[in-house]
Lab assay of single mutants.
Amino acid sequence: MQIFVKGLTGKTTTLEVEPSDTIENVKAKIQDKTGLPPDQQRLIFAGKQLEDGRTLSDYNIQKESTLHIVWR
């Protein structure tokens, strides 16, 4: 499925993911596209910070959802 990651600059990155992907895995995909290391990424969805060990489905993140990224 496709999801979007929007940064503070307003730039949006598209990712191809599975609902079973962990947040850690998603951060690795973001690094592949942007070069930003996972330890500098904070992902937010529906006002919650996403924890590395959880999956996208744990947070009810579905296709075409938009996550927000904040740099540490």
Rank of each mutant, 00 (worst) to 15 (best):
Ile3Ser: 01
Ile3Leu: 05
Val5Lys: 01
Lys6His: 14
Lys6Met: 11
Gly7Glu: 11
Gly7Met: 13
Gly7His: 12
Leu8Cys: 11
Thr9Tyr: 15
Thr9Ala: 12
Thr9Arg: 12
Gly10Cys: 08
Gly10Lys: 08
Lys11Ile: 13
Lys11Leu: 13
Thr12Asp: 06
Thr13Ala: 08
Thr13Met: 15
Thr14Ser: 10
Thr14Leu: 11
Thr14Cys: 07
Leu15Gly: 00
Glu16Cys: 10
Glu16Gln: 11
Glu18Ile: 11
Glu18Ser: 14
Glu18Gly: 07
Pro19Gln: 08
Pro19Arg: 06
Pro19Glu: 06
Pro19Gly: 07
Ser20Gly: 11
Ser20Thr: 13
Asp21Ile: 05
Asp21Thr: 08
Asp21His: 05
Thr22Ala: 05
Ile23Arg: 00
Glu24Val: 06
Asn25Val: 14
Asn25Asp: 09
Asn25Ala: 14
Val26Lys: 00
Val26Met: 03
Lys27Ile: 03
Lys27Pro: 00
Ala28Trp: 09
Ala28Thr: 09
Ala28Ser: 11
Lys29Thr: 03
Ile30Val: 06
Gln31Asp: 03
Gln31Gly: 09
Asp32Met: 14
Asp32Leu: 13
Thr34Ser: 06
Thr34Ala: 04
Thr34Pro: 02
Pro38Gly: 09
Asp39Val: 09
Asp39Arg: 12
Gln40Arg: 13
Gln40Met: 12
Gln40Cys: 11
Gln40Glu: 09
Gln41Asn: 04
Gln41His: 09
Gln41Asp: 02
Arg42Phe: 12
Leu43His: 01
Leu43Gln: 00
Ile44Ser: 08
Phe45Ile: 03
Phe45Pro: 00
Phe45Leu: 03
Ala46Asp: 12
Lys48Ser: 09
Lys48Pro: 01
Lys48Trp: 07
Lys48Val: 15
Gln49Asn: 10
Gln49Phe: 13
Gln49Leu: 15
Leu50Arg: 00
Glu51Thr: 05
Glu51Asp: 09
Asp52Cys: 04
Gly53Gln: 10
Gly53Phe: 10
Thr55Ala: 06
Leu56Val: 08
Leu56Glu: 00
Leu56Gly: 00
Ser57Leu: 10
Ser57Gln: 12
Ser57Ile: 08
Asp58Lys: 02
Asp58Thr: 04
Asp58Val: 03
Tyr59Ser: 02
Asn60Leu: 06
Asn60Gln: 10
Ile61Pro: 01
Ile61Met: 03
Gln62Ala: 10
Lys63Met: 11
Glu64Pro: 03
Ser65Ala: 09
Ser65Pro: 01
Thr66Ala: 04
Leu67Pro: 00
Leu67His: 00
His68Ser: 08
Val70Asp: 11
Val70Pro: 02
Val70Tyr: 13
Val70Lys: 08
Val70Ser: 10
Trp71Glu: 13
Trp71Ala: 13
Trp71Phe: 12
Arg72Pro: 14
Arg72Cys: 11
